[in-house]
Amino acid sequence: MLSKTSLGMIAAGLMGAALLGAPAFAEGSGHDQMKPTRLSWSFAGFFGHYDQAQLQRGFKVFREVCANCHAAEKLAFRNLAEPGGPEFSEAQVKALAAQYKVKDGPNDAGDMFERPARPSDTWPSPFANDNAARAANGGGLPPDMSVLAKARSYKRGFPWFVLDALPGIQYQEHGADYIAALLQAYKDEPPHGVKLDAGQYWNDIMPGNRIAMPKPISDGQVDYTDGTPATLENYSKDVSAFLMWLAEPKLDQRKKTGFRVLVFMAILTGLLYATKKRVWANTPH
C-alpha cells in the first residue's frame, strides 16, 4: 500500500514532470490573437487513424492549390499508395506520376534531360530554388509542406498543456487545427486603424496577424467528386488532414503498435509484481 507521503511524492513528481514539460510556443506580438478551434479529427485519440477519403480530397486541394507555390520535397509519389495514407492504387500513382516531369541525367552526351516521373521520384518543387520562390512570391518564401503540420502549433497555456499529455484526453493535433483555422481566418480588411504594408494580408490566426500569403482558397475552387460539399471549411479540414499525414505518415502504425505495447506491458508489469510479491512473501519489510 502506498502511504500519504508516497502519494504526495508521486503527485509532486508528476506535477513537476508535467510543469517542467511545458512546451513553449512562440507568442506572437499581437496579444489579441485568436486561438484555433479544436476540431475533431479521425486521427486523434487512442485508436486514431487517417480517413482515406479525406486524405484523397486533401491531396486534391494540395495538388491543385497549395502545390502551385509550396514544395513538399519529402513526398514521394509511391507514398500516396502506401498503407495508412491516401491509399491510391499502384496504377493510379503510376499514372499520376507520369503527368509530372522530373529532371534526370546527365545522359551520355552530358546533358540533363526531363522525363516523366516514376513512383520512386519525389514531388517536383514549383520553383527551382528558394531564391526563385522568393522572387515569384513578393519576397516571401512559401515553406516546404513536408513536415509543416508538425512545425506549426499554438500555445495552450497552463493548465491545458499539462492535461494535453494525459491518457484519454491527450491532444496532439495542434498543427492540423492551426492550419485549418488559418485558412479560414482571412479578413478582407484589417481592423480599423491598422495599416498593412504591400504584400501583407490580415489573418486572425497568424502570429502577429500579418501574413505574406494571399487568401489561397475559397468556396467552390476545387471540385469534389465524392459528394462532399465544396466549401472553404471542408477544404481547410481536408488539406490539414492531408498535411498531417504528410508530416506523420506512420501515425496509423504508431498508434496500432502503441496500443499493443501498452496492453502487453500492463500484463507484464502485473505478472512481475505478482512474482515479486510471492518472492517477498516470507520477508517482513
Binding site: Q170, Q172, M265
Partner: peptide, 17 residues
C-alpha cells in the same frame, strides 16, 4: 511507451521541425 506511441512530440518543440 505512452510518450513514444501516443504523444511523441509533446515534449519537443514544433520549431525543431
Amino acid at each position: 511507451a505512452w510518450f513514444v506511441f501516443f504523444i511523441p512530440n509533446f515534449l519537443g518543440d514544433s520549431d525543431n521541425y
